[in-house]
Design a protein around this nucleic acid. Structure first.
Lengths: 345, 345
DNA sequence: TAGAGCCTGGACAACGTTGTCAGATGCGGG
DNA sequence: CCCGCATCTGACAACGTTGTCCAGGCTCTA
């Protein structure tokens, strides 16, 4: 009776422990441990008795205690910007698949593009002693991670490089992709080309802007300030930026959109105006092929990005990797119509 | 020297513990614990000394040990079908936000619509002693969860009810939504209406089929077998099903698509054929408004679904909830053109 | 100035598991 | 018949933290 009372006061409801199983099976604690972990050295008869006790009590090993003893948690953390963004779904899923293949679980969190929140999340994950971290950084100073990395937390950055520290990073060729996309517009006769992108403090945004400038320079086209809109991200402001660009004193005849969200809004704005405007977007978007005209994009492969990063993470954990590396994945120009429209001058 | 060697052999690299901090600060172990947890009863001077030692050593509390002692992990598990599906991104994000507001982290895993994998995942999460579980079930027998729930793991099912056990569930009104969507087509003059949906063993699929049948029956329209395609999910087979329906001996003039993936494929098929076909889809899809015609959908709010479930989970954890409940969220018909097309007879 | 009461700090056990090591048992061979 | 060896089993410490409890020093009052 007293025993029952004690048990029901347990913090885990009243979960049986190995000790309980051992008592019921009439064996020692360690024997239960051996059965649970499939270790050798237990007679079939003993094993059966233990197994029966386990089933009867509904015992489930407490991995928290196990972690404390073994030091590895078999879990990795993924910090990204926003799980609701269609770009991160496939990436996250790819990381999860790799983790699963290595018997690890995935803890993930969204930074909401806030450096403080990123740090808070990362440190919370470190306190949980995740074995490794895949980070899509929001901030640009990751020195706070140095003690963690030194302590053995495997770390891979994705989509954007780490700031102020030397770490593995897997990213898309934003510069090359943007340059090719803009060059594609130039090849179709455009000279007045607009660029709408995110804040240049975000690495990918800066690289894509650089790609835009490079393509323009290669073609000997001087870029006018009105053609560029940087740091706008919410639909309303993107909309305004696009409208301004398309109706200013020297309106652009084509737009290069710096990411999927911008692309969607620009498509809307163009659709509302009668005149066709050429458009190339960075990142593929669903149903892009069904619009009229189809949306030409510079596609990056989110799943491959995630998979590559996760695989590298586990190679770090195996200890086969020493020096941080920068892996750049190529982008792919998918022509669907909007990028091949001639200037509507 | 020997000390250094011992430390560097630690499983966590060589992470300092509270003991190390205490030694360095020249105080007792418990005092460090007090400082780390902001507990009262430490003089400012002592606190400063401890804080310095913490910073100098780069100490970070080991939450695994903390969990073992306290019994609560401050983490919840989310098991869904596929994180890469655009429907689950916002749902997952919403759950994460609620978790964050309660100071908890989110571990999530994809079942890939495989009941065994779902169970494996759920039990792995239970072994980690997550405080609660949000589950989008793949299987239809969840008796394996009974001991866990009894042991105090809060559990909420989302999108589909639990099988064989009585548990909280938050879902969209699939039946009503589908019925309204089909009635909408009927109101626009259609009588030969096709239905393409997932396997009826999936609760939502069955409910939507039931809604379809109800609307047809309400209108006194007998349903022909050729008009229904059940259990197809991959694009190729959906495509074939749609084509058959549209070109059989008694071709349908309108299609009701049972979920977002089906809708996308059907939109493609319709776009490829010259003749317009009316379409209403379950689940909203991005850019649906920009297609020609816009795609009329029965929208459900994934974020609200996730938020509601997570809030209920935490109320369970607070102990204010006793009886499992079924919460049904309304759907919303969004007319954009495709559902208002007249029959093309 | 002694005693009561408060505040700070530390020793110790406990959480549930695994690694180490030694004891018990059984079996075969000398 | 006993010894040695192999096999199976269990006692115990340790992982890093937190809760309990007590000691010592201080202040305040009578």
């Amino acid at each position: 009776m007293a025993e029952t009372a004690r048990r029901s006061e347990n913090r885990y409801g009243n979960r049986p422990t190995m000790k309980d199983v051992a008592a019921r099976a009439g064996v020692g604690l360690k024997t239960v441990s051996r059965v649970v972990n499939g270790e050798p050295g237990v007679t079939p008869d003993t094993e059966r008795r233990v197994q029966e006790a386990i089933d009867a009590l509904g015992f489930r090993r407490n991995d928290s205690a196990r972690v404390l003893r073994k030091g590895r948690t078999a879990s990795i953390g993924l910090v990204l910007e926003d799980l609701a963004d269609p770009f991160y779904g496939p990436l996250s899923r790819a990381v999860e698949e790799v983790a699963r293949a290595h018997g690890a679980l995935l803890i993930n969190g969204s930074s909401a593009e806030d450096p403080d929140r990123e740090q808070e999340l990362v440190l919370a994950l470190c306190a949980r002693r995740v074995d490794g971290l895949v980070i899509i950084p929001a901030g640009d100073d990751h020195r706070y991670l140095e003690p963690e990395i030194k302590a053995g937390v495997a770390t891979v950055f994705v989509d954007r490089p780490a700031g102020q520290i030397d770490a593995d990073v897997v990213l898309s060729d934003s510069f090359g992709g943007a340059r090719d996309g803009v060059a594609h517009l130039i090849a179709h006769g455009h000279r007045r080309i607009g660029f709408i992108g995110d804040m240049p403090r975000i690495h990918t945004a800066a690289e894509r802007l650089r790609g835009y400038r490079a393509a323009m320079e290669d073609a000997g086209i001087p870029v006018e300030d009105d053609w560029m809109s940087l740091g706008v991200t919410d639909p309303q402001r993107v909309r305004k930026a696009a409208e301004d660009m398309l109706s200013g004193p020297s309106p652009v005849t084509a737009v290069f959109a710096g990411n999927n969200r911008v692309t969607v809004t620009v498509v809307r704005v163009i659709a509302e105006r009668g005149r066709p405007v050429a458009l190339v977007g960075f990142d593929d978007i669903e149903l892009a092929d069904l619009l009229e005209p189809g949306v030409t994009v510079v596609a990056q492969d989110a799943a491959t990005l995630g998979r590559t990063a996760a695989e590298r993470l586990f190679r770090q954990l195996e200890g086969t990797l020493i020096t941080p590396e920068r892996i750049e994945l190529p982008t792919r120009l998918i022509t669907r119509g909007s990028g091949e429209l001639p200037p509507a001058d």
